[in-house]
Structure formats: C-alpha cells, structure tokens
Design a protein around this nucleic acid. Structure first.
Lengths: 193, 193
DNA sequence: TCTTGAATTGAACGAGCGTTCAGATAAGGT
DNA sequence: ACCTTATCTGAACGCTCGTTCAATTCAAGA
C-alpha cells in the first residue's frame, strides 16, 4: 500500500488531465467525482492532488491550455482579407474537429469557474474573436466584404463554424475537407460585398 | 409543522419548474440540489416529490415542453422559400432571445438525460431542424437558393442563429430588431443563388 | 360545523462528495 | 548497496446528496 510500480509524474500527470477531459466532456464537471477520475487513471483519489491543487483548477487549466493552443494555431497569414478569412475558417473547423472534448468543455463549463478564472478564460476567448474581427474589418475597409456590423458578424460566423462539432462524425456522408469547403462557401457568401 | 398557509398545487407546481429552470441554467443540472430548488420555492425538499417523480424527470419535462413550444411557434407561412426563410430566421431569434434559460438547458444538459429521454428530445429537435431543411430544399429546387448540401446548411444556419443567445444583452448597442435584420441579411446571402 | 383529503414538514436512510495526511514503497542518484 | 525523495495508498474528516415516509395541518365541499 504505497508507491506503485512504474509510477512517474511524467506519465501520471498527463493521464490525469486526459481522464478529466474525457469524463468532464462526457458527464459534465459537476457530475464527475475525483474518485472517478482516479479510477480511470488507475490510482487512488488522494494521488490526484499531487497533480492539481483542486478540482476547479484542473478544469481551469484544461480550458486555458486549450484556448492558448487555439490562439497559437492561427496567425493571420497575409494575402488579403479574403484569403485570411478562408484560412481562418478552415483552421477553425480543423482545430475544432480535432479536439471536440476540449471545445465542448470550454464552452459548457464556464459557469463552474470562479469569477477570476472565468475572467481569464473570457479574455483568451476575446483575443481569438478579435483575430476574426480584424480580418472582417480590414475586408470591409477595402470593399471586399459587406457586413452591417462587424462584431455581430464575428459572433455569427464563429457560432456557425463551431457548430460543426455538434453533428460531424468521421466516416459519414461528408469528409472533413468537404465540410471545410461547404462552410467556407457559406462564410464567403455571407460577408460578400 | 405540516401543510403551509396558502399552499396549493396550482401555484407550487409552476414555482418548482421556474426555480429548477433558473437554477439549472445558472449552475448546471448536476450542480443544483433538490434542497436548493426547494429553498427557492419556499418549501422543504420532500415536497418537491409531489410535483415530479425525480430530479431527472424535472429536467426532461423542461426540455420537452420547450421543444414542443418551439415547434408550435413556427409553421411555414407560405409565400415562397425566401419569405419563409426570413420568417424562420426572425422567429428563431425572437424565440431564443425570449427564453435564454430554456434554450441553454436544452442544449447543455442533454448528457444528463437517460438514453430514452435523450432519444425523445433528439426526436423533437430533429423535427424542428427538418422544418428549416424543407424550406431550404424547396428554395434549391426552384433556383432561389444555392447550397452544396442542404443538411449542412441547415445545421450551420441554426448554429449561427442560436448563437445570438451567447452575447446579446437587452439595452446594448443593437436592438432586437437590428439583430434580426443583420442576421437575416447574413442568412440570405449565405444561401443565395 | 364537520369531515375528508390534499399539501407539507422534518427526520431519517445509505451513499458519495472533495480534500487531507501519516505511513509505506519504489525509483534513482551516489 | 545505500539513502533520499518522489510517488502513492488507505483511512478518515465533515458534509451534502436524492429520495422516502409517518405525522401534521390547512382548504374546501357537504
């Protein structure tokens, strides 16, 4: 009854995060117990506290790491507003289809964050939205796009693109590239001058 | 310590549902206890079981009543695909802005339903989506719309429109009608031939 | 006014919760 | 081979959970 064979912080730590991610996404933060996470990892509940100060921080760090990844994943590539908007749309869809659990959690469990943690997550999300907003604004400025309200268009487009995670299944009627193409077509037309 | 003054099933019943709705939306189904709901209503926890067989059914009935309302709220008004699409978009936005808590719950708490209850809710949601799908399909048939995939366009448009609940605040920069107009403009262009 | 039944209390049930910690064991540098 | 230290166990803490039920009181029809 003590340290286990093969135990190593470098392997257990990520396993804790993976298990928490999967379980939070499937059942919701509040519905998942530390003992369930521990069972998934193969340790006792007490051992989790070597890797996180508490349950709330576990959630918070999953969210912020995800949003930081998302921000790093896309920088405006240049080439003008239309090319940048296409690049954004395709990257957004790819990133979201690759990490459905993280996306789900980052949208759904905001209310389980403390006010400070919530503010930090909202700041990161705002930074991402500002990227798209800047592309739209520059496209409006040189007459490539026509939208009555850039902020609203930003929110509308992100909602539409993110929604792909709610229905897309690999091996279905449409491939990922098909989906990218079709969404990009709708985005392009929705903001076209 | 027993029956309270002014007690009446006709008043307590709705109060239970209202309190559950508000609390579920704010904190999540799993994070809300029957005792919290009871406190909000002004009764003891045991009394709730006169109005619902259990906590899960309370959630399920909130969802199904909402979706049935949504289905009743909009019938194709005729006048051709373009007019019908506009009517759908405007109704969808209005309905969702009027019931943010119900909308939130119906999207977020699906994973807390039993498989049977989940299937029933999905059936209702599918019926609603089929309404929009039919409008798009008829518009494509007579050349008014051009979308590469009607099903995907349906999901994309509903996601975009529903997303309005995540950011709209009354008294902000844009009125509800402004928002309706702008979203309708984007929808129209996104599916335009 | 009396009686009947609907509405509610308050206590209790067993179970599970997040978190802490002393003690035990394996890993890894010397 | 030894020793230190990182890793983990298992028990325990006080608390809350959903749900049940006998007892009690109010409302309302006769």
């Amino acid at each position: 009854m003590a340290r286990k064979q093969g135990s190593h912080a470098g392997t257990t730590g990520p396993k804790v995060r993976d298990a928490a991610l999967r379980l939070f996404a499937r059942h919701g933060f509040a519905a998942v117990s530390m003992r369930q996470i521990a069972a998934e990892v193969g340790v006792q509940a007490g051992a989790l506290y070597l890797y996180t100060p508490d349950k709330q921080t576990l959630l918070f760090e999953l969210m912020t790491d995800h949003l930081r990844d998302l921000l790093e994943d896309w920088q405006p590539p240049g080439g003008g507003p239309v090319a940048e908007l296409e690049d954004f749309a395709r990257h957004h869809i790819r990133y979201h289809l690759d990490r459905p659990d993280l996306v789900f959690i980052a949208y759904m469990e905001l209310r389980n964050l403390t006010p400070e943690n919530f503010a930090a997550v909202e700041r990161l999300r705002g930074a991402y939205e500002a990227r798209l907003e800047a592309v739209l604004r520059s496209g409006v400025a040189d007459g490539k796009f026509d939208v009555p309200d850039v902020k609203l268009a930003t929110m509308g487009l992100i909602a539409m693109l993110t929604g792909v995670t709610t229905w897309f299944k690999d091996g279905g009627r449409l491939s990922r590239v098909d989906v990218e193409d079709i969404y990009w077509g709708m985005v392009r037309k929705a903001v076209s001058a």
